[in-house]
Simulated assay, not measured.
Amino acid sequence: MSHDLLKGKKGIIFGALNDMSIAWKVAEKAVEEGATITLSNTPIAVRMGQVDELAKKLNAQVIPADATSVEDLQNVFSKSVEILGGPVDFVLHSIGMSPNVRKKRTYDDLDYNMLEKTLDISAISFHKMLQVAKKQDAIAEYGSVVALTYVAAQRTFFGYNDMADAKSLLESIARSFGYIYGREKNVRINTISQSPTPTTAGNGVKGMEHLMDFANKMSPLGNADAEECANYCVMMFSDFTRKVTMQNLYHDGGFSSMGMSLRAMNQYSKGFEEYTDENGHIIYG
């Protein structure tokens, strides 16, 4: 059911790959709420994914771009302004990838060239995007920019690896650029810290299915799925959040405020009992 929250608004969605992508859901929801959009992803993602299928469904144009390339980003913003008929009202940054995670390099054995790529793709691309947009004056006054992040920026999670560093940098960029862009152009910049979500990128994290189960047991409202995240993004793009900026907003069912839940404690106790003898001594395998 549409509420016309984005009626008449224009936007750019970076990162839609397939129907598992949060960006894909955000694009669908934005158009459903009255927006017109352009879509962007890397040339190889456009070839290998299903972005063209989404574009046809939403009557949106695809502008391939490497988000680490300033030249490519300049093209995305200038073409989007041309196609959509003026400065955009919202932008979604849903981009993240770690070669170290893909190659199963542990955090104490990182390949530093790969680390540079992780940071460039997953965080510095956000700064480049904002800098290009500001120089082109491509985002309308009171526009909204949202980047997706994860609580591993604040806490340590096994297997999340150097993506945690990238998300920390991403959130810092939102605050630092949010001050400048807000002061000069009334553009607001926020990050949404989403529950672990089974996207193509998320599934690359070691033990993702266990992490999702643990987060679900810890969260009083359970994990937020991609569809629910899309709804939250649309609200952040809308005029109802015109004075919200420089915030890291948790969309995780309450996980980020929890220490231990009853469900998680019961699961832990059950597992603990399986590895103790009748005297309560731990059985080592």
Score class of each variant (00 low, 15 high):
A153L: 11
L169Y: 03
N216K: 09
A138R: 15
G207D: 10
E184S: 14
L221H: 13
R175S: 06
V145M: 00
Y179R: 06
L148G: 02
C229V: 06
E209F: 05
P198W: 06
K217N: 09
K217D: 04
P196H: 02
D225L: 01
A230L: 10
G202V: 11
L148R: 13
Q154M: 11
D137V: 02
Q194P: 08
V132E: 02
H127A: 15
D165N: 12
E184M: 07
R188P: 09
T149V: 10
G222C: 08
Y181R: 14
I121Y: 14
A138C: 00
N186P: 02
V151A: 04
Y150C: 13
L148A: 05
C229H: 07
A226Q: 12
L170P: 11
E184L: 00
V234T: 04
R155M: 00
N190E: 11
I121H: 06
A123E: 02
N161G: 03
A152W: 15
L170Q: 06
A133M: 13
Y150A: 02
L148D: 00
A152M: 13
D225I: 08
A140S: 15
Y179E: 09
F157G: 01
K135D: 03
A140L: 08
Q131M: 00
K206W: 03
T197V: 14
T199L: 04
S172L: 12
Y181V: 00
K206N: 05
A230K: 04
N231I: 10
R183S: 08
N161K: 12
Y179Q: 00
E228D: 10
S172N: 12
G202N: 01
P196F: 05
H127S: 11
S125R: 01
H127L: 07
I180C: 12
I180T: 14
V132M: 12
L221Y: 00
M235S: 10
P220Q: 04
F177M: 08
A224W: 09
F214D: 12
N161S: 04
A153M: 15
L221A: 11
I192C: 15
N190P: 11
Y179F: 07
D162R: 05
E227F: 05
D213C: 13
I180P: 08
P198N: 01
E228T: 01
I180G: 14
D162T: 02
T191K: 11
V151W: 07
T149C: 15
S176K: 05
S219Y: 06
E184D: 12
K185V: 02
L211R: 04
A147N: 05
P220R: 02
V132F: 09
C233T: 13
L170C: 05
A215F: 00
S176L: 01
V151P: 05
G178S: 08
T156S: 08
I124W: 02
D213Y: 08
G204L: 08
A174T: 14
K206M: 15
D162V: 07
A174Y: 10
E209V: 03
Q131R: 15
F158S: 09
K167E: 14
D137Y: 01
E184H: 06
P198K: 06
P220T: 00
C229W: 10
A140G: 04
K128I: 03
F158R: 15
T156I: 13
A224M: 12
A138I: 13
N223Q: 07
P198I: 00
F237M: 06
G204S: 13
M208L: 14
A123D: 03
F237H: 09
M236K: 09
M236T: 07
A153W: 04
P198M: 04
M129H: 09
N216T: 03
N216H: 03
R175N: 13
A153D: 05
